[in-house]
Write a protein that binds this DNA or RNA. Structure first.
Length: 311
DNA sequence: CTAGGGGTAAAT
DNA sequence: ATTTACCCCTAG
């Protein structure tokens, strides 16, 4: 780190770091930055951050959730991105509690039968479970892919999850596998390798999803749409900014959408049941190929097996 | 050490 | 041109 002259280049916080910070605040309380930093559970992730960094980041994250933070004096530019029902109450429940948790998990259950939540679906820019799953897998960075439980945990403690989230997740995973976006090995899911074409450089950075959308099969266009990372972040940011009620409404939309997607997924899975088999066959082939290569002068083939599948 | 004010590179 | 969000500074 050589910032010789002024002007720090910037070092954006990663999702892991944010997650670690949230977890740390949950464990030790907001304000105990030093304590969090020294906690062996988080020091691994946050070792390049200072206590002040933690404090600042927490402030930045809190500013949106609610007028809570402190850094909003002239910054009251709130963007109303949802016309929504006119009668939206505005309870000024300013809970000034620095030590309190910022849990948003206690959102009260949605009004059962009242379909008031049926807000007009704004295009297709809604948060999609797909994106969360992809983010979870890439950020978890587990060598052999991540299993359903790990993925669920990641999403659950990083974002708000609907009641029957597990079921939705299962359906979505199945669909993603059958549509070729994910590959299932044993019990683990990993991001599918790039379509065909030549991959010029190995992108060891995060989010290899920047790749074009793959045109495998003719799944409905809306489902194949791939979002860029910034788009995903934008959506997630919006979610964080929402009030409990807005979040509940958005979540209800997401649930409805996911439910529809599940039916679609199950049908697709029935038809394209061979996709998984293909993937596993390719995996088996790749492993066999690896074994054949073993013994050569190659010191250590660390190349992800996924890269070989389409070879 | 932490909270808050403020500066500014980077993003939109 | 405006907003974001890292980073630095300083008082308590």
């Amino acid at each position: 780190n050589f910032r010789v002259v002024m002007g720090a280049p910037k070092q954006k916080w990663t999702s892991e770091e944010e997650a670690a910070l949230k977890a740390g605040v949950l464990k030790h309380g907001a304000g105990k930055w030093r304590t969090i930093l020294k906690d062996p559970e988080f020091s691994g992730v946050l070792y390049l951050r200072s206590n002040v960094d933690l404090k600042d980041k927490w402030r930045n994250m809190s500013v949106m959730t609610n007028g809570l933070g402190s850094r909003e004096k002239s910054r009251l530019a709130l963007k109303r991105l949802q016309p929504a029902p006119k009668q939206d109450e505005n309870p000024t429940n300013v809970s000034e509690a620095p030590q309190s948790d910022e849990e948003i998990a206690d959102v009260k259950p949605l009004p059962s039968s009242s379909a008031t939540i049926k807000i007009t679906a704004p295009k297709r820019s809604i948060v999609r479970l797909d994106n969360l799953i992809l983010e979870a897998i890439t950020n978890l960075r587990e060598p052999g892919g991540s299993n359903k439980t790990a993925i669920a945990s990641y999403i659950e403690d990083q974002y708000w999850a609907p009641p029957d989230f597990k079921r939705l997740l299962s359906g979505k995973l199945k669909f993603l596998v059958s549509s070729g976006k994910l590959i299932k090995v044993k019990r683990n899911y990993r991001i599918a390798p790039f379509p065909a074409s030549s991959y010029k450089r190995r992108n060891l950075q995060m989010i290899p999803q920047e790749a074009r959308q793959q045109t495998s099969g003719k799944v409905d266009g809306d489902e194949l749409r791939i979002f860029t990372k910034s788009q995903i972040d934008l959506e997630l940011a919006k979610m964080r900014n929402m009030s409990a009620q807005e979040a509940a409404a958005a979540a209800a939309r997401a649930v409805a959408e996911a439910e529809a997607a599940i039916e679609e997924a199950e049908e697709a899975a029935r038809e394209a049941e061979a996709a998984e088999a293909d993937a596993e066959a390719a995996q088996a082939f790749a492993e066999a190929a690896m074994k054949t290569l073993r013994g050569r002068s190659t010191p250590k083939m660390v190349v992800p097996i996924a890269n070989m599948i389409h070879a």
